[in-house]
């Protein structure tokens, strides 16, 4: 147990160094990964665990994979999914897959033992917090995935990490019990069936304590991220969001997934998906 903890600690320190050097070891690869687990979490969300034959390169929260849905021959393009967890020792990547259309649906029907062609790691990750930062993570729907990953590897003490998870109803929340020790968790549901009633931005932590945070990170539906960004922007707080523009290649050549930013049209797949709100042209 101690060895595992030491390993994780060492890994986190290494991550910080690599991250500080910025994308030195972020070579993208296309490989066939073995699906070793596919667990339905609730009606629309599945947790898929993929294993690599070779050691994994460094992967950071906010980065994503682009998956070929070979079993649905009518689906031409790959589908991007954000990364929820990485286990370097067992060489696995966990993806939280929400059914949004035919592509994601067929992906959730894959059975363990099947090979999946995956391009990874893609995109620029969230900025890691500083050792003394107090951070707020806000996840909506399948946007909880990178928030949990960030909570896990940010290297902060649990009392520095606060996370609000939003969903329509209690049954839409995914079970994240194994992450409970990493952060102070708060819930919001639109129907009030779990945690506070309303949107994440109605949660007292958000409405009353927002300024106590050094960094705010969010991933989820656009309206939610815009509502978060608006309040953070007003108070001049550091805030990063993760965008989901429709993409074709995922590695910066087709120029289809662009976001209109203060620096012109930028590819969400290579210049994002994580953006600082100050760089976006959101009307907030």
């Amino acid at each position: 147990m101690q060895q595992v903890a030491a390993f994780i600690l060492l890994r986190n320190i290494l991550h910080r160094i690599i991250f500080a050097l910025k994308s030195v070891n972020m070579r993208k690869t296309v490989s066939d990964l073995l699906l070793i687990d596919n667990k339905q979490l609730n009606k629309d969300n599945f947790l898929l665990k993929l294993q690599s034959k070779t050691p994994l390169s460094d992967i950071f929260p906010g980065q994503f994979v682009n998956v070929e849905i070979k079993k649905a021959t009518e689906i031409f393009l790959r589908r991007p999914f954000s990364i929820m967890d990485v286990d370097y020792e067992n060489r696995t990547i966990s993806l939280l897959v929400k059914i949004l259309g035919r592509g994601s649906k067929v992906f959730t029907e894959y059975i363990p033992g099947e090979l999946v062609s995956v391009i990874f790691p893609l995109g620029k990750p969230f900025t890691l917090p500083l050792p003394n930062d107090r951070i707020l993570l806000i996840g909506g729907g399948s946007g909880v995935a990178p928030m949990l990953f960030l909570a896990k590897i940010c290297g902060l003490k649990p009392e520095q990490v606060h996370m609000i998870l939003g969903a329509r109803s209690a049954t839409d929340h995914v079970d994240i019990s194994e992450y409970e020790g990493l952060a102070n968790l708060y819930y919001a549901t639109e129907d009030g069936s779990k945690g506070e009633k309303g949107f994440v931005t109605h949660h007292p932590l958000f409405t009353h304590q927002l300024e106590s945070f050094d960094k705010i990170y969010t991933c989820g539906p656009d309206p939610m991220m815009k509502a978060v960004a608006k309040e953070a922007y007003k108070r001049k707080l550091f805030c990063e969001v993760s965008l989901e523009n429709t993409m074709a290649c995922g590695f910066g050549v087709c120029l289809c997934c662009v976001e209109d930013t203060k620096h012109g049209n930028l590819c969400v797949c290579t210049e994002g998906p994580v953006f600082n709100i100050n760089d976006l042209k959101w009307q907030i």
Binding site: F76, T246, C254
Partner: peptide
Amino acid sequence: YPRMAETPSGMLN
């Protein structure tokens, strides 16, 4: 944006 649409066996850009 949007600049891309997936279509049967292909895509529009």
